[in-house]
Simulated assay, not measured.
Amino acid sequence: MGMLHVGRITRIDLPDAVLAHVHAVLIAKLRVHEPVLVGWISPDGRRDEVLVHPSMSLVVRYDADDAVGLDRAWLERLMRSANGVGGLQLTPDMIDAMRALGAAGAGAPAGAVEPAS
Rank of each mutant, 00 (worst) to 15 (best):
G7D: 14
A100L: 11
G107Q: 05
D48K: 07
A24W: 00
V22H: 00
K29L: 07
P43R: 13
G7R: 07
A104D: 03
V60K: 11
V6I: 13
M79Q: 15
D48H: 09
E34K: 15
G87F: 09
D93G: 10
R61A: 15
L30I: 10
M98T: 01
R31C: 08
A108L: 12
H33K: 12
I9S: 10
L90V: 04
A67F: 01
A116T: 14
G107P: 00
V68L: 04
G45K: 13
E49I: 09
D48P: 02
N83R: 11
L78R: 01
E76G: 10
G45E: 12
A106Q: 03
G87C: 11
V18Q: 01
G102L: 02
P15D: 13
L4F: 01
I41S: 07
M79P: 02
G87P: 02
G45Y: 08
G102S: 09
P109A: 06
E34F: 14
I9P: 00
D48R: 14
H5Q: 14
G105A: 03
H53N: 12
G39E: 08
P35T: 06
G102C: 07
L78W: 05
H21W: 00
A64P: 03
D71N: 12
M79F: 05
I27C: 06
G111V: 10
A112W: 15
H5D: 06
G105T: 00
L90C: 04
L75Q: 13
L88N: 13
A106P: 01
A106G: 04
G39Y: 05
L26H: 01
G86A: 15
M79E: 14
V60P: 02
R46V: 08
D71E: 09
A103T: 07
V38I: 15
